[in-house]
Design a binder for these strands. Structure first.
Lengths: 245, 245
DNA sequence: ATCCGCTAGCGTATCTGATACAGAGTTTTA
DNA sequence: TAAAACTCTGTATCAGATACGCTAGCGGAT
């Protein structure tokens, strides 16, 4: 029987810790899914996703590469586990906090989360996030927006909107912060040279205005994100008031 | 002299076709950057990014793997070229079109673009998009929003917001459409099972309401995106009217 | 008590893909 | 017409994922 190399069912099982009941025989297990995941996570946090190889993780744990496959069916699955493991429980709304503040707190926390684990957004997405922690965060966002008066498909839509723009802007911020020193400056330089006023009038006009050159450093991007969210919530309030949703 | 393996400068050079003047000596070139890029692009469109390897591209062209390196300094650079090559010129706004319609047309076109080249959003971003076509699209979006009354950092922020949420939602839609047949259904099934009303009350409430189970198929996601953009623009109008920006 | 069968961890092998390097043939310029 | 500058080829290297078969530890049925 070939090793079950994955599939959604297996992934979900692993993520939710539903241990397929295994016989108690054989040598005691020296490792565990959690231990493997933790080790991989530590490597990624310290040296980036590229440093995570099965060999490296095994070395870190003092085991052979192949023994990891006793716990994790493939590297891809391991990465899914890492992502969920990197995700702490979502922030708890404070008493009396407005729903808008709740949303903004969520955005800030998400921003922080991605910056704390700069590799997370490099993982090319394949599946919807079905890990327990991922789901908890999404639930938290839905909760806040629901308080704001949204329901059903609209609720889902706006939540996705906020989620994806937060992810996207965080990814940009991280790319700029992570690149070799000077990459950002080099990019700005290139931008300045290429965004000529004839072909790119609007963009060209922004370059001096934006200080670092149109692709801003971290804090400014966050401010931009926050503004976008605020305006979206403004629009949403109007929408709800008008009686839809 | 080692082959220049890249760096922003080289990338930009390639993207903008600034041919570093090469001597006219030696055998006539059988290939060109464009030809290599085109071949790679065709493979990616037909079989996904995973099918693009240097060997495969070379085979397609009837050359050796290594000969490609005469034209393209590395695979990563080739991928950047592919992305820009996959990007047609942005849509041209119609006469008399409102700025809001201009934005919405932009969003729709972007959506279509990503769906036409389903591999583009799988590329883990490293650099800001400096290719000429990428820049042209961004300029188009800036132009529309500028007409709406935004300036400077606010303009940049809202443009990024729209860009990232469009990318993000398109990515979700593509993942669902691309997975093995049944993956989406399986995910919904899992979601239904895992999103228990006690721990995930809001999410749980959405599952039946959302038809396919909370993670909607293509058209519905597009509707959601469009709604989000509309509300954001609503908020933006208020903001502009209030005199900021 | 004991032995059987399950299983963890090991060593090694295979396969795929990127990229280095050296050599041979081609074309232009001094 | 030789030297120089290139292009393309063939082969080698290196990394990383994962298959496979072996050995030995351990719990449970005899």
């Amino acid at each position: 029987m070939p090793r079950d190399t994955g599939g959604m069912a297996r992934t979900v099982e692993l993520l939710w810790g539903v241990s397929t009941p295994r016989g108690t025989r054989g040598p005691r297990q020296g490792l565990s899914v959690a231990a493997v995941t933790r080790a991989a996570l530590a490597i990624a946090d310290a040296e980036g996703l590229g440093a995570v190889s099965m060999q490296r993780v095994a070395k870190e744990l003092g085991y052979t590469t192949m023994s990891l496959y006793n716990y994790v069916p493939s590297k891809d699955q391991l990465i899914e586990l890492m992502i969920d493991a990197a995700t702490p429980p979502p922030p708890i709304p404070e008493d009396g906090e407005s729903w808008r503040d709740e949303v903004e707190r969520w955005v800030r926390a998400t921003w922080g989360l991605y910056h704390a684990h700069r590799w997370v957004l490099k993982v090319p997405t394949v599946n919807p996030p079905l890990g327990p922690n991922q789901m908890a965060w999404f639930e938290a966002l839905l909760h806040a927006l629901h308080r704001g008066g949204l329901e059903g498909a609209e609720l889902m839509a706006i939540a996705q909107h906020i989620l994806t723009s937060t992810r996207g802007q965080a990814a940009i911020s991280i790319d700029l912060a992570t690149g070799e020193d000077g990459t950002a400056a080099e990019a700005n330089e290139a931008l300045r040279r290429l965004a000529t006023p004839d072909r790119f009038p609007t963009l060209h006009g922004l370059i001096p205005a934006a200080g670092a050159g149109g692709f801003h450093p971290g804090a400014e991007i966050y401010e931009g994100l926050a503004l976008g969210v605020r305006l979206l919530l403004d629009g949403m309030e109007g929408y709800v008031r008008r009686g839809a949703g």
